[in-house]
């Protein structure tokens, strides 16, 4: 493996940092070299959050260059759009369809983009799109805060990640508090099992019509 670049995006408070730290820890346990770049501080106050995980022997730079992400994991639909410049035609997308409207759009009287518009723009870049309602599955797991774990289960099922599924699951369990371990295990499995269904989601969305 030359390098494998994962971009994780979402909204402050959704647990973007947790995903990147899980991937980083699991990578180290797999004997891989890794760089996990986080941003703390002001950006986290409900703003867009972007983290990157880079795996590979000769990985030095903390950040991913534009057009060079192998996988973009987005915890919110429009956050995936915001970072399209990091994608190329081969990039895999994993998108949580749970929409969080920026409070600013209501203040300015605008609307959240239509799902069909979001998918048109994603499809214009790449055909490999996994989409899933992670909030629904997280609720099924008994803990709405496990949306990020659902997404980890999903990307693990895609087989593209150079990290073993069982190891990934074990790492999550080791990193969460005892009382949340069970719900995280369930959330991971629910995400994992949704792989086939999530592949069909994008093609089921018709083109945007005004």
């Amino acid at each position: 493996m030359d390098e494998f670049n994962i971009l994780i995006v979402g909204v402050g408070g959704q647990g973007v940092l947790f995903i990147s730290e899980v991937l980083g820890e699991a990578a180290i346990k797999s004997g891989l070299n890794v760089r996990v770049a986080e941003i703390h501080g002001m950006a986290q106050r409900g703003g867009s959050v972007i983290c990157s995980v880079r795996l590979g022997k000769d990985v030095y730079s903390p950040t991913i260059d534009e057009g060079r992400a192998h996988l973009i994991l987005s915890l919110e639909p429009i956050e995936a759009l915001r970072q399209l410049k990091y994608a190329n035609t081969e990039t895999d997308f994993a998108v949580n369809m749970n929409k969080i409207a920026p409070p600013g759009i209501y203040v300015s009287g605008k609307k959240y983009p239509k799902t069909s518009l979001i998918f048109d723009r994603l499809k214009a870049v790449s055909k490999n799109i996994l989409a899933i309602d992670a909030l629904k599955l997280a609720n099924e797991a008994g803990n709405p805060a496990t949306q990020n774990t659902v997404m980890l289960g999903l990307i693990s099922a895609s087989k593209k990640l150079p990290i073993n599924t069982q190891l990934l699951k074990k790492t999550i369990v080791a990193l969460v508090k005892k009382k949340f371990q069970e719900s995280n295990k369930i959330a991971f499995d629910l995400g994992f099992k949704s792989y086939e269904k999530s592949k069909k989601y994008a093609s089921s969305i018709r083109r945007y019509q005004k």
């Binding site: 909204v11 402050g12 002001m42 950006a43 986290q44 106050r45 409900g46 703003g47 867009s48 534009e66 057009g67 060079r68 429009i78 956050e79 759009l81 915001r82 399209l84 410049k85 994608a87 190329n88 035609t89 409207a101 920026p102 409070p103 600013g104 759009i105 605008k110 959240y112 983009p113 518009l117 723009r121 214009a124 870049v125």
Partner: peptide, 18 residues
């Protein structure tokens, strides 16, 4: 790797910290 002009668009609502 990719034609950035094809995908850049200002139609994504901004999400500053609040």
């Amino acid at each position: 790797n990719i034609d950035l002009t094809k995908i850049t668009s200002n139609s994504t609502p901004s999400r500053p910290p609040v």
